[in-house]
Simulated scan of single mutants.
Amino acid sequence: MKDFWKSPKPALWLGFAGLIPFVAPPLFMGVTESYLPEFAYIQLAYSVSIVSFLGGARWGYALPESSPAKPDWINLSNSVVPSLLAWVTMLMADSIVPAVTMVIMALGISLHYDLSLLPTYPSWFKALRAVLTIVAFFSLVGTLVAHGMYPEKKMFSE
């Protein structure tokens, strides 16, 4: 974690800006003391796009000939797993609790891959990934708490 602040400024700014769709829904639900299923779905959809992005980043890291991560079966297969988990998550999207639980697991698996299976990533990147994933995790847990604690309120009528 000591290398977190060595992250390039664009990575820090874009990484923290990328947390807004994670943090805003549960924060808004907490302030209004209501569970908003549309906001939960928006957060879920964004979460699965990020999980897929993380797999794609891993694939991209393995492609250059100079990369220490070779485009072998292990690296490329591990690159595809997050997208498959994201797809399964969206198949469960009609029920927020299992879907959010699944995307939390997908984020955790992706972080595990990045920290332990590809130790050649730059240390600043691994620190940044850990911080961003922790915030995303707690934001998703916040949505689950709002679901269980607050009355449901529809933002948009049908």
Rank of each mutant, 00 (worst) to 15 (best):
G18K: 02
G18A: 02
I20T: 12
P21S: 08
P21A: 06
P21K: 01
P21L: 05
P26H: 10
L27P: 02
V31R: 15
V31L: 15
Y35Q: 09
E38Y: 01
F39A: 15
F39K: 02
Y41R: 15
I42M: 13
Q43W: 01
V48M: 10
S49E: 01
I50K: 08
S52I: 11
G56S: 09
G56I: 07
A57E: 01
W59I: 15
G60R: 07
G60V: 12
Y61K: 12
Y61N: 10
Y61I: 13
P64F: 13
E65S: 13
E65K: 13
S66A: 15
P68I: 00
A69M: 03
K70M: 11
K70N: 11
W73G: 14
W73D: 10
I74T: 08
N75A: 09
S77F: 15
S79V: 08
S79M: 03
V80P: 12
V81W: 04
V81Y: 03
V81T: 13
P82N: 08
P82D: 03
S83W: 08
L84R: 11
A86Y: 09
V88N: 05
T89Y: 12
T89M: 12
T89F: 11
T89Q: 12
L91R: 13
L91Y: 07
M92D: 05
D94A: 11
D94P: 01
S95V: 11
I96F: 12
P98I: 03
P98Y: 10
A99H: 05
V100G: 01
V100K: 00
